[in-house]
C-alpha cells in the first residue's frame, strides 16, 4: 500500500462522524465493517484492537473540531440548543471538511452551507442565520487585515466625479432581522457568570431565556458594522442609509454614486441629509474605517 493510499483510508475513517455515545461507528461510510477496515492497516496490541486504536484518532478529530466550532459559534449553539448544534456540526464538517491549515477558518463556509441546508436552522431559521453571520463576521474582524487609515483631511479632496473611498478590509457589514449583536453579548456574559459561580444548568437556562426573548421579537431590519479598533472588536448599529452608503463603497462605486445609492427609497427629509452625511463621515473616519486603496491583494476583502 502506498503512503497516499494509507492516508486516504485512515483520513476517511478518522473523519467519519461518531455515534450518539461518541464512539467510532461500526460501519464505514461505504457500508463495510469498520473493524475489518481498521485491521487492514492498523496493528492491534496486547491491550487494544485495531478498531480501538483507530477510534482514539476518530474521537480526537471530532472532539477537537467540535470544540473549535463551539468556541467560534457559541451564539448559534445557544439559539439551536447544544444537541442540534452538534448534529449540525457533524453534517457541515462532513460536507465541508477543513481545507485550511488553521482551525480559524473552520466555519468559513457555514453561512453558505446553512443557506443550502435550511433544515439545520431549527425553529427560528432567520434568527439562527443572523447569529451565524454575526459570529463569522466577528472572526473576520478580529484578525482581518488592516490598511493605513485615511486621515479626516484626506476626505476633503475636491469632488472629482470618479473619487472612490475604500473601507478597512476587517470591517464587516451586516443586514440583519434580529438584534443578534445584543444577544451575542448577553450570551457571552452569561457564559462568564456561569464559570464564576452558578452551575452549567443555571447558565444554560439563562441563555435559553435570552434566546427566547429575542425569538419572540418581530423581525425588523437592523444594520450593523462589525470592525476592529485598537485590537478589540466592536458592533455598531448603522442607519439604513449609512449602511447603503457603505455597501456601495465596498462595491467600489464612485463616491457620487454611493451617495445616490444611500438615499434610494429613503424617507429621510432632503434637508436633513447633508448633516447626516457629514456626521457619518466624521464618525467613520474617526474610527479609521476608511483607508487608502489596499495595494496588497491580500488586503482586499
Amino acid at each position: 500500500m502506498k503512503l497516499v493510499t494509507l492516508q486516504r483510508r485512515m483520513a476517511r475513517a478518522v473523519m467519519t462522524p461518531l455515534t450518539r455515545t461518541e464512539r467510532m461507528r461500526p460501519r464505514t461510510a461505504a457500508g463495510g465493517s469498520m473493524r475489518a477496515e481498521a485491521a487492514t492497516f492498523i496493528k492491534p496490541n496486547d491491550r487494544l484492537t485495531s478498531f480501538e486504536r483507530l477510534e482514539i484518532y476518530n474521537r480526537q478529530y471530532w472532539f477537537r473540531l467540535l470544540s473549535s466550532m463551539i468556541e467560534d459559534f457559541a451564539g448559534l449553539q445557544a439559539v439551536l440548543g447544544s444537541e442540534r448544534f452538534e448534529q449540525l456540526c457533524y453534517a457541515y464538517l462532513t460536507d465541508c471538511p477543513s481545507r485550511s491549515f488553521t482551525l480559524r477558518n473552520l466555519g468559513s463556509q457555514l453561512t453558505t452551507w446553512l443557506k443550502k441546508h435550511p433544515r439545520w436552522l431549527g425553529a427560528q431559521p432567520v434568527l439562527a442565520l443572523d447569529m451565524c453571520r454575526l459570529e463569522w463576521a466577528h472572526i473576520e474582524a478580529f484578525d482581518g487585515p488592516e490598511a493605513p487609515a485615511l486621515a479626516p483631511e484626506d476626505l476633503a479632496e475636491p469632488g472629482r466625479p470618479d473619487f472612490r473611498l475604500h473601507l478597512q478590509p476587517h470591517l464587516q457589514l451586516l443586514s440583519l432581522q434580529y438584534p443578534v449583536d445584543d444577544l451575542a453579548l448577553a450570551i457571552n456574559d452569561s457564559a462568564g457568570d456561569n464559570s464564576a459561580a452558578a452551575s452549567n444548568a443555571v447558565g444554560e437556562r439563562r441563555k435559553q431565556r435570552r434566546v427566547q426573548a429575542v425569538a419572540r421579537m418581530k423581525p425588523r431590519p437592523i444594520f450593523l458594522a462589525v470592525y476592529r479598533l485598537e485590537n478589540s472588536v466592536y458592533y455598531r448599529r448603522l442607519q439604513r442609509e449609512e449602511y447603503a452608503l457603505l455597501a456601495a463603497v465596498r462595491r467600489g462605486l464612485p463616491l457620487e454614486r454611493c451617495l445616490v445609492s444611500a438615499f434610494r427609497g429613503s424617507a429621510m427629509p432632503a434637508e436633513d441629509r447633508p448633516a447626516a452625511i457629514e456626521e457619518w463621515f466624521h464618525n467613520l473616519s474617526l474610527l479609521g474605517l476608511f483607508c487608502r486603496q489596499p495595494e496588497d491583494p491580500d488586503l482586499r476583502p
Binding site: 478518522v14 478529530y61 471538511p97 481545507r99 482551525l103
Partner: peptide, 8 residues
C-alpha cells in the same frame, strides 16, 4: 490528504 485537514 487531498487538501483536507484533520488538524491532528
Amino acid at each position: 490528504v487531498d487538501g483536507r485537514y484533520t488538524h491532528d
